[in-house]
Structure formats: C-alpha cells, structure tokens
Design a protein around this nucleic acid. Structure first.
Lengths: 182, 182
DNA sequence: GTCTATATCACGATAGAC
DNA sequence: GTCTATCGTGATATAGAC
C-alpha cells in the first residue's frame, strides 16, 4: 500500500490551490498530509521531486480525461466546459491537478518542465474537442472559453452577476454544431 | 520627477512575468531596476508596499483601458481580443501589469487584495464589452476567450498549430453582431 | 535619496534514531 | 518507513553612513 505518496500529492495540490506556491513549503505540505517533513522526504527526496511527481500525475490524468471528453454522453464541449467551471471537477479527475500545476508555471527551471506538461494537456484537450467540432477555430474558441473559466477559478474572481455555466452552454449550443449521434 | 518609483514597478512586472513570484525578491527587483535594495526600500517600505503599488497601477490602467475598449475604432471585441493575445499589449497599457498581477494571486493576505483588484478589472472589462454586445452571455464569452488567451500567455503554452488571433477574430465576427457605427 | 552593513528568521535538505 | 534534531542558505527588513 503506497497510500502515503498519494496523500502527499493530494496535500500538495490542496496547499497550492488554497494558499499558492509561496506557501507550499515542505513543512506546510507535510502538515496537510499529516506526515512529518522527514516522512515526506522519504517519498519525494526533494522539492523538485515533489513537483515532478505532481507533473506525472497530471500526465496520467490528462490522458484519462481526454478519453472522458470523447466519451461524454452530452457532448465533448458540454463536458469540457462543465469540468472547467469553478467546482466542476470530479474527485480524482484532472481539473484539480491542473489548477494546482498552473500555479507552478513560472520562469524557473522546474517551471519549464511545468510548461512542457501543460502544453501536452492543452494539445490533448484540443484534439478531443476537435473530434466533435471539426472547425479548428471553433474547437479553439471552446477551449479558450474553458481556459477563461480556469483563470476565474485560479484567481477566485466572481462570475458576472446572473451568469452561470448553464447559461453559457445554452448560448454556445445556439452557435455550435450539435454533437453528432454515434 | 519620481522616475525611480516607476522604474521599480516596471522591473517588478518584468521579474514577475519572466521568472515568477518565487524569484521576485527585493534583491532581484532592485537589480532589475538598477537601484540598490536600500534605494528600493526608500520608495516602497516593504514587499507588501511594493505589491500594493503594483495594484494601484493596475487600477489606474484598468480604468484607462476600459475607456480605450469603448473607443476602439474596429470594435470593442477586436480591441480586447488583440490586447489579450500574446504580445498584444501596448507600452504603458494594462496588459503587462495585469499579467504580472495574475502571478500574485494566491491565498495569502495580500493575495486577497490582489483578487479584489482583479475583480474590479474583470467587471470593468465586462461592462466595456457589454457596450458593444448587448447579449450578456455573448459579452461573457468574448471576455472568457480573452481570459483564455491570457492564460496561454501566463503559462507560455503554444497556440494550436496554424491558429492565430486573426483567425480567431474572423470566426468570432461570423457569430457576433458587428459593432454598430456611431 | 541612495547606499552599505547587519540582525533575524524561515526554508530546504541531511543525519541518524527508532 | 517514519520520525526528531540540526545545519547552511538566502530572504526581509532595520540602522545608520553619506
């Protein structure tokens, strides 16, 4: 049972999302995971190794999510937009990990590895959306709308008053071709 | 002439955007502004005061930019999307300051002040877009597309191959009502 | 107004007990 | 496999010279 490793990664995500990378110290992550700092460092031998572990998790979950986008019953766009919205992530899904990794993107050496991983995620999402929307620009617009929602979640900025994800999807359906039945 | 103060803020923006908040130490900012650390601390008495100074700049520039969105000759949406795209900011404009401030948003005490300032910026942008797009959801979609582009810039993720801002605007014009002539 | 110290503290990482 | 104790580094901020 390697449950401690996953608990540490869960805690790392939580601290990154709720308090930011500046607060994501080894002490804080260890406390949130309810292990000692030494225990954390047994599983991840350095802070860089911890970040690498989170990126590996992101890659795994991104591939699984791309498959979920394609298989979504009410269409790729609806699934993608819903999971991008604040609170729309599913437990064990890619959304929470993605939001945590976004906070690690900067100009440092590990920040470059983060950007590489994010580029793969974006490409997989885009391809999955293209399976439903054959117009490349429309697929890109749908992806950008989802990214905009991610940015709102990332910064905690409130949505415009009276507007929510369902209003968004309703209007988008007016303009986008409907998902074709298999 | 308070030129040194502005130089420090310019340097702070540069370091935040290019190397991230973890690298934005007083030493690094002072070096980039070509003043000593003591010189920097004369103008901004603490790191918090430096962040507050940047937020004040963001508020000033956001108000000016909201006016520019409304007055743009080729329409509010086109102006907003162009300035949101990588490299689309104008010198002294809000884009660069906005991107720098995005990196400061976290769960700390000053992070809360950052999110408050970002909420004002988002509301001003939205109102300015509403002046052209009377449908609130369409205005929101346009804003989210711009936010998605900001996120791409923030993380340095490449755009989908073959796609650029002009393709984006061209397709959006197909679906959005054209800007009405004054 | 701008600089050079320097005090203080928090973080990452190591060593070694259990 | 997990813990406590400790060291070295680098960051913020202060004091005070020029």
């Amino acid at each position: 049972m390697t449950g401690a490793r996953d608990r540490v990664l869960d805690a790392y995500e939580t601290v990154l999302i709720e308090h930011g990378p500046g607060s994501a110290t080894l002490d804080a992550v260890a406390a949130a995971a309810e292990v000692s700092k030494g225990g954390l460092l047994y599983h991840f031998s350095s802070k860089d190794a911890l970040a690498t572990g989170l990126l590996d998790r992101l890659r795994e979950r991104s591939s699984a999510d791309a498959a979920a986008i394609r298989a979504a019953p009410d269409g790729a766009v609806a699934y993608y937009i819903r999971t991008s919205a604040p609170g729309g992530g599913v437990p064990g899904g890619v959304t929470r990990t993605y939001l945590a990794v976004l906070r690690l993107a900067d100009g440092t050496e590990t920040g470059q590895a983060v950007r590489d991983a994010l580029a793969v995620v974006h490409a997989e999402e885009y391809d999955a959306l293209r399976a439903e929307l054959t117009d490349p620009v429309l697929a890109w617009i749908a992806q950008l709308v989802g990214d905009g929602l991610y940015l709102r979640t990332l910064t905690g900025t409130p949505l415009p008053p009276g507007l929510g994800v369902e209003e968004l999807l309703s209007t988008m359906r007016t303009y986008l071709p409907p998902p074709s039945a298999t």
